[in-house]
Design a protein around this nucleic acid. Structure first.
Lengths: 340, 340
DNA sequence: TTATTTCCTGCACACGTGTACATTTTAAAG
DNA sequence: CTTTAAAATGTACACGTGTGCAGGAAATAA
């Protein structure tokens, strides 16, 4: 069995209460006995039980993080930001991937709730408002990152995707492109809508029209989805000269399809991604994209959560906080002047 | 305050012991009262406390997983395998990244230990045997994945890296290459040594010699590290015609450096990666690599851990289990015949 | 009916820790 | 030295749940 404060107390000839105080460095215990107790504790290999503490204090020092998929570079880069803040603060965190499955996400929240996490950072995307209402019923603080059910939530962080795709669209127009396509992601819900809106806005501002057939939703947000999107565009009788993809992964898949068909990027087609995942600087050609500050977003989400659950004594938390961030366009080599 | 079995007991007019039994579906409670109690529990939004249960039973239903970095696709694909098994079994798991920092890993183990995880899956790489000895002192079951301190551990999984690089080397030799380089990863310790050994073995078997200058350790395992490796090779007076990289990320960075300098892959240089991260099929040219079954490795690690901590009644766990897996070579478009 | 058995339920304590309060020890003051 | 205050330590109960044991209710047998 594990070493407890009682074992230490016995060996030190004091009560377990004194040990409890000593290991937490409370000033009410003499320095000398504190030292003695700590030596014995270290000697026995004592590790305090967060569970017992949680039972008394209601604080578990544990959080939960939900993402759609762990092996999606967008999420894993964001997670690294969350991690670096939480580890610093001595918080542990559970992680789980919802796979965009409503029931799976419910099961995850249930499990985390049983584990008495102090809060949950949700980076995946609840499908319905109904779902979101269910989430709020459990009374655990939530921080939502780029979540769909925006309006309903108190604490959330957003990246301004519409602004991002507006910048990207402008960039293409400045290069002389007029026939521009948007390759979306069927699974991404509101996110793909926001990005589409930015694209439409950019086209409208320039007085350009969009052919219906230039807007296509790929089956997923992976390279495979981008590849099949590429096949779609290549089969159009009059394909666009530039394509804005939902994200970098899809752009990479799309480029693959174009190159495989013997076309050149960017001289035949300009291709654009979104997110600036780390690999996007090393593709061939390197990818023009929009730099969404994922790592910082993760950090800020973690900090927001910590602020909520550890409010400073003298101030109350605001009822609601929404942080909106904007990244910046990164022009690389996958975009060029429109062909004649 | 959260709903407890006492609250339910009060409302149902029974003792909390009966509620405790009812919510766990023990047969000793009448079906009728069980139903009534469960209805009340659901009505009040009861969520059992894993912490209180853990205190009594010693089982926390929580595990820990340590990786070097979460945003490394190798680890995140492996993690997805772990996740898919554990979620199915109702286990939650803490995750943490060590950043290959000894002290950070120690702090992580401490935190997880306080959280009373039932076991820890370690995918990062302990530097020293001393470190590994410290790990074993805490009496928590460990499963090591591709870990350096191989011999000392009871439960571990390995991918046969040496075999892998032997296959890759053979492939290049069959293509007529004789001047072959190995670009390692300075941070990867034993892993890069194993892969180097496979390379040397392949060369030796073919009666080929290796120039010292063809073996170079890049500063890290990311594209950046591969890029600087590429710059190194390009500055050699007599560069190799083919380069085997520590992993796919480095191979992608290396290709970037070669292409940037105006060379062609594979007609000027053949390039090979390792791991088969999902993006490697979509690079330009697509990457010849060795398919390490990361997802399956993660699954097996999780299953092994579950077997250890939930042994079947009628059988005892073996004192030690080591699983070794072999992947297979994937020939794509980044390798070709040696130039004249 | 009563006696016996089986089935349910309640009581009481345990898990490891924290804390208000009581008690003892120590230090300071007289 | 005693007296008094302050500091250090101990006692007892609490957190939410599980479980051995005892007791009560119901079902079966006589």
């Amino acid at each position: 069995m594990r070493v407890t404060i009682k074992n230490i107390a016995e060996k030190a000839g004091v009560s377990h209460a004194t040990v409890s105080r000593a290991v937490r460095d409370l000033p009410s215990v003499t320095f000398k006995t504190t030292k003695r107790i700590k030596d014995i504790a270290a000697d026995l290999g004592y590790v305090p039980s967060a569970h017992a503490r949680s039972l008394k204090s209601g604080r578990s020092k544990a959080l939960g993080v939900i993402v759609s998929r762990i092996d999606d570079p967008y999420f894993s880069e964001l997670l690294q930001g969350v991690e670096d803040i939480l580890q610093q603060e001595g918080y542990a965190y559970f992680i789980a991937s919802s796979n965009r499955d409503f029931r799976r996400e419910k099961a995850i929240v249930q499990t985390m709730s049983e584990q008495r996490v102090e809060g949950i950072i949700i980076c995946s995307t609840p499908v319905s408002k109904e779902h979101h209402r269910q989430l709020k019923k459990i009374d655990i603080p939530l921080v939502l990152v780029n979540n769909q059910a925006a309006e309903e939530s108190e604490y959330s962080l957003y990246h301004d995707d519409q602004y991002g795709n507006l910048q990207l669209t402008r960039h293409l127009i400045e290069l002389g492109h007029t026939r521009i396509g948007y390759l979306g992601n069927l699974l991404a819900g509101r996110t793909t809508e926001d990005r589409l809106a930015g694209f439409k806005e950019g086209m409208k501002l320039a007085g350009l029209s969009i052919l219906d057939e230039y807007i296509f939703q790929g089956p997923d947000g992976r390279p495979e989805g981008g590849f099949s999107g590429g096949e779609y565009y290549l089969h159009l009788p009059n394909p666009p000269t530039a394509i804005i993809c939902f994200n970098d992964m899809m752009a990479i898949g799309l480029m693959k399809a174009l190159l495989k068909a013997g076309h050149n990027v960017p001289s035949d087609y300009s291709v654009i991604g979104f997110d600036n995942i780390s690999i996007s600087a090393f593709t061939n050609p390197s990818l023009t994209t929009f730099d969404q500050p994922k790592y910082q977003l993760g950090q800020k989400a973690a900090q927001m959560m910590l602020t909520i659950i550890n409010p400073l004594e003298d101030e109350r938390n605001p009822h609601s906080t929404v942080i909106t961030t904007r990244g910046r366009i990164l022009v690389r080599s996958s975009t060029g002047p429109a062909p004649d």
